Simulated scan of single mutants.
Amino acid sequence: MITTLERPPLSDRLRVYGSRVKDARVLEGLRAGSVAEALQIGATRYSRLEAAGTSSPVSREELAALSDVLHFDEDYFLSPTVTVVERTGLCFRAKKSMTRLQEDQIGAWARLCGELVHTVLAGSGDSIKMLLPQLDPRTSPQLAALTVRDAIGLTVDGPIAQLTRSLERAGVYIFSAEFAAEAAARHDAVSLWVGEAKQHPIVMVRASDSWERTRMSLAHEVGHLVLHRYSKPEDAEDAAFAFAGEFLMPSQQIEKEWPSHATLESLLPMKLKWGVSLSALIEQGHRLGLLTVERRRSLYKQLSARRQYPSGRTWREQEPGFDQREVEKPLLITRLIERAYAGNISIETLRRMISSWPARYVSPLIEGQFRPPAGHINSSENVTSIFARTG
């Protein structure tokens, strides 16, 4: 452990990056004071180490201690940050009770996702055309939703069969994993733009067994991407929800199909057709003036009162139709990796390519992608799935 605060000799000096140190700490769920104590250095010096805008000098012994305490490879701390993620540039659905540490964890995961996208694109040479339009921030959520549908090649009034595939074809990089070290950090999804010109859109979706929740989270984050690319107003969450409702349930068609007397049973066929939850339909119906406040409240009470058989879960917890679709999984990143590196890539190789991030953080990003059948090989490109290579 570190036993001196003296500046290391010039010949024995290495430089570590403060953002790397902080990301490692927050991902491990540690407090700065605890890390400083474990390193046997003063809290002030440790704070300066994390806050350094570029890099800070450390001795070889100090670097080894950092690696030991934070459980990250030494090479990770010596690597400059590839993806700049500003706190104000992150948009996410989350509980108001989220702590600062939990929010910092989201930022660290976002930097990892951005770094993976950057590395894979640089290695593959593929150029995925980004189709999301750049909209005036004053554009209404409803108009924005229809504009995005048209821009990415969807009809303006039909159900979106595979939302994840449609977004990936439009150049959106999607990751599905448990983006938190603490189980209490119940955020649903995160979106951000990365790259020097903010040209690559990324959506991080919290792993879920609910296809309804996953699709709504994706649509919500697309709303943030197109409406809040450069600034996030106070009503950003309301606007993103309104965008998602119109994007998944175009008002013109919903108004045509809305039952004369809306009940949970009469809304169920619409739920399955449009690929949304009953709750989302209720909200869209209320937003369009098809449900009164009283009727909306009554339908929510029924969702909370009715129970699934034989699980006993309420319809609010698990709606009917939960087993009628598979949870959508992304696949663009693994396709790019496999195409670029063929059968000569593994998680270990991949993690070393992206500044030696630990496998325990890289693996969930790959495992959250669509998993092909065991032994699957793309014969047209002679590409072996990365899932088959874990060493």
Score class of each variant (00 low, 15 high):
Thr390Pro: 01
His261Asn: 11
Leu248Trp: 09
Thr263Asp: 05
Gln102Tyr: 03
Glu265Trp: 04
Val35Trp: 05
Gly107Asn: 05
Thr119Ser: 15
Leu267Tyr: 04
Phe243Gly: 05
Thr292Ile: 07
Leu332Lys: 08
Gln134Glu: 14
Ser191Asp: 11
Ala36Leu: 03
Gly53Tyr: 10
Leu227Thr: 04
Val69Gly: 03
Arg313Ser: 09
Glu381Asn: 14
Pro141Arg: 10
Ala342His: 14
Val35Lys: 06
Leu78Val: 00
Pro137Cys: 04
Arg20Gln: 10
Arg87Glu: 14
Val82Ser: 14
Ala151Val: 09
Gly275Ile: 07
Ser47Ala: 14
Gly275Trp: 04
Ala36Glu: 02
Ala52Gln: 13
His376Gly: 00
Thr83Cys: 11
Phe179Ser: 00
Val148Glu: 01
Gly289Glu: 11
Leu267Ala: 06
Ala65His: 11
Tyr341Pro: 06
Met98Tyr: 04
Arg352Lys: 15
Asp188Leu: 15
Arg287Pro: 06
Ser67Tyr: 01
Ser127Asn: 02
Thr164Arg: 00
Ser231Tyr: 06
Ala52Ser: 13
Arg165Ile: 01
Ser140Val: 05
Leu39Glu: 08
Glu62Tyr: 00
Asn344Gly: 08
Gln253Cys: 03
Ile152Lys: 00
Glu182Met: 12
Trp357Gly: 06
Ser266Arg: 14
Gly33Ile: 00
Thr164Trp: 00
Asn344Lys: 14
Lys95Val: 12
His200Arg: 13
Asp126Trp: 15
Arg360Asp: 12
Glu168Trp: 10
Arg87Ala: 12
Leu350Tyr: 12
Leu66Trp: 04
Ala240Trp: 09
Arg165Phe: 01
Val148Tyr: 00
Asp209Leu: 12
Ser379Arg: 08
Val69Thr: 10
Ala170Asn: 03
Asp157His: 09
Leu10Trp: 08
Ser55Arg: 15
Val26Ala: 07
Arg206Ala: 08
Trp315Phe: 14
Pro8Cys: 01
Pro372Arg: 00
Thr83Pro: 06
Arg149Thr: 02
Arg186Leu: 08
Ser97Asn: 03
Ile202Pro: 04
Pro8Ala: 07
Val276Ser: 04
Ile152Gln: 00
Leu299Asp: 05
Thr164Tyr: 00
Glu317Leu: 07
Gly53Pro: 02
Leu299Phe: 02
Gln284Asp: 03
Leu154Thr: 02
Glu61Asp: 11
Asp68Met: 06
Leu70Arg: 08
Leu218His: 01
Ala94Ile: 01
Glu328Arg: 12
Lys256Ala: 11
Leu288Val: 01
Lys129Gly: 08
Ser67Gln: 07
Asp12Cys: 03
Pro250Val: 01
Gly285Ser: 06
Phe387Lys: 07
Glu367Gly: 00
Gln102Arg: 02
Pro133Gly: 12
Arg306Lys: 13
Asn382Pro: 02
Val276Phe: 05
Arg296Lys: 09
Ser217Pro: 00
Glu338Cys: 12
Met204Asn: 03
Lys329Glu: 12
Leu291Cys: 02
Ala122Gly: 13
Leu167Glu: 01
Ser191Gln: 03
Arg7Val: 11
Arg111Leu: 07
Ile202Asn: 08
Gly321Gln: 10
Ser140Ala: 15
Glu283Ser: 07
Leu30Gln: 13
Val203Phe: 01
Ala32Cys: 06
Thr4Glu: 12
Arg186Cys: 08
Ala236Trp: 10
Ala388Asp: 14
Arg360Leu: 08
Ala151Asp: 05
Arg295Lys: 13
